[in-house]
């Protein structure tokens, strides 16, 4: 029986963000919360393998109680069990403190019900750090493949997985022993439209809530702000880009407009660089 664990995060839907035209600030109001898209694709892959091999999928998320919505969405997609690790003391965690809580949680689940593959999205769209997956792998001592676009083979008997990982240069085909941790690209699987019975089950589903008071004992010094070596020193808005010059080709003519454009690119040293000229 296959047991996959998928770590999911709830994020603001950054494709829907609006910018206040006066202040240039992000308008957070009304921005819907969604499951991090990379996590959703990773989950879809886990569920695909569960349906193929038989077994189950457990999802874990660390965050405030309203992350229940995302756990339910995972159940809707076909996950069997959801654990929400939530405590005020976890607030303000950076990636190191987050990887601590997730690794402890996943380890505890693993000890009670051995996990074959831990899935992560390649990164969360709100932070884009791509650090938590590798962090959990290090803490749990699991082999890891990042940027996975495909699982070629998943052999529970011979305890091995073969995954394809995409880099700038090529696609690497890597073999790892199980259990292993994967961080996934969107291509790994399409998100299926869940059947109605799964949706109804998910709406009635209440995830397990794990907190500082149990069932696990978390080290106070390693969670939340206390467990986070980095702090935000200051926040600022970047200077709004100054709109460059507009050349109206209908007035000056197309050839002249292109000529002026290239002259500006030359002045910025751009064309020479890309054409490999003056070096």
């Amino acid at each position: 029986m296959f047991h996959a664990l998928v770590a999911v995060k709830q994020v603001p839907d950054t494709t829907n963000i609006r910018i206040d035209p006066e202040t240039g600030n992000l308008v957070r109001e009304g921005v819907p919360a969604i499951m991090n898209p990379y996590d959703a694709h990773a989950l879809a892959e886990a569920i695909r393998w569960k349906r193929q091999l038989g077994g189950k999928v457990t999802v874990v998320s660390m965050g405030p109680p309203n992350f229940v919505v995302t756990i339910r969405e995972a159940i809707e997609m076909g996950a069997d069990r959801g654990v929400l690790v939530s405590d005020r003391k976890f607030a303000g965690a950076d990636t190191l403190a987050t990887s601590y809580v997730l690794a402890e949680t996943i380890q505890a689940i693993h000890e009670e019900d051995p996990i074959d593959v831990v899935f992560f999205g390649k990164q969360a769209i709100d932070g884009d750090t791509a650090q938590v997956g590798p962090g959990v792998a290090v803490r749990m001592g699991l082999p890891i493949v990042t940027y996975v676009v495909k699982i070629r083979e998943l052999d529970l008997e011979r305890r091995r997985i073969v995954a394809e990982r995409k880099t700038e240069r090529w696609t690497e085909v890597i073999e790892l022993p199980l259990p292993a941790l994967l961080t996934c690209e969107k291509e790994i699987a399409e998100i299926p439209f869940a059947p109605l019975p799964d949706l109804i089950r998910s709406l009635r589903y209440d995830p397990e809530m794990w907190t500082m008071s149990g069932p696990l004992e978390f080290d106070k010094g390693q969670v939340g702000v206390r467990g986070s070596p980095t702090i935000v020193f200051k926040m600022g808005t970047p200077p709004l880009p100054e709109a460059g010059e507009k050349i109206d080709a209908r007035e000056v003519g197309v050839a002249e407009a292109v000529k002026q454009t290239f002259a500006k690119a030359d002045a910025a040293g751009i064309l020479d660089t890309v054409l490999g000229g003056a070096r």
């Binding site: 439209f193 109605l196 949706l199």
Partner: peptide, 9 residues
């Protein structure tokens, strides 16, 4: 009938 698979209520 809904737009979901197995979508009858």
């Amino acid at each position: 009938i809904t737009d979901r698979p197995d979508g009858e209520l």
